[in-house]
Nucleic acid binder design. Structure first.
Lengths: 157, 157
DNA sequence: TATGAAAGGCCGTGAAC
DNA sequence: GTTCACGGCCTTTCATA
């Protein structure tokens, strides 16, 4: 994967904390000239380690207060069933994460909705219509306890 | 929540796509002067709708290739049991999300580890030692199918 | 109340070492 | 990795609808 040193990790740490920090600011914090800092950032971007920079929005403030964890089991686990299902999931705008799980070969989805009625719409309109779906299990989140951009162990210092 | 107009939503959309876009760039895209654009951004920040700006890192490239979905059930659901458990979860650096779920009153955690052995360490060292834990169920993700910063329905246009 | 225009200082970028 | 210089950006102020 790498050849990253402590300064690279420091840069990544700072950019996760504040992606809009100026380069002189970053350079000062990690003890480097702005030019060298900019070069490292470019390398991290081109290596694909930095995928981009995103604004972190408060979803509840935008009316999205309902998080639902959905487990979906398919009728069959053949290649084309998986592919067809995954294409449908990717097209559903309300899904923010989807993982293919080991063991029982089902999918875990995290769905965000405005309220329970909105989730019902998503369920009817998208989830239940996805190809090859045998069972859908939904459970509602009452409260978000922890939310981190990355695990704290990702970037040693 | 609001009083947000189309231009605010456009700004948010652009900042989610690229948080490092310059203000003249943003201003050009949404048809506004840089000054007005900057003012709106400041208001969105102070309103708390924009929580911050984060670099989006490729975790697999940093050696974090193992995502585990963990469900934890507590022995009791009294206030202080929940509070003690939640404090412990917040202290675990490998947990990136934790939700209190409705119904059975357990917690859903998303844990990121370097590999299965690393997860075993996290399990022994953190998860199993959290106060009030009755049961732990872990399932491994084989593949990430979808990952979005925000649902596409969050920002109308 | 929100926008647009102009001025000044700061930042980001590239060349040379 | 650093220094230096230049071009552009960000910020503030002020005038306007």
């Amino acid at each position: 994967m790498n050849g990253l040193d402590r300064r690279d990790f420091r840069i990544l740490t700072e950019l996760v904390a504040d992606a809009r920090a100026s380069q002189v600011e970053l350079a000062g914090k990690i003890g480097l000239s702005p030019t060298a800092c900019a070069r490292r950032i470019h390398q991290l971007e081109e290596a694909g380690i930095i995928r981009g920079y995103r604004a972190d929005l408060d979803l509840p403030m935008l009316g999205l207060v309902t998080t639902v964890m959905v487990t979906i089991t398919l009728e069959k686990q053949s290649e084309d069933f998986l592919a067809a299902f995954e294409a449908a999931v990717a097209r559903c705008p309300d899904v923010i994460t989807c993982h293919l799980m080991s063991g029982t070969d089902d999918y875990h989805l995290q769905v965000v909705a405005r309220d329970i009625a909105d989730f019902e719409r998503i369920h009817k309109q998208h989830l239940s219509r996805m190809p090859g779906v045998a069972r859908i299990h939904s459970s509602f989140a009452m409260r978000e306890v922890v939310r981190r951009a990355i695990p704290e162990t990702a970037l040693p210092r």
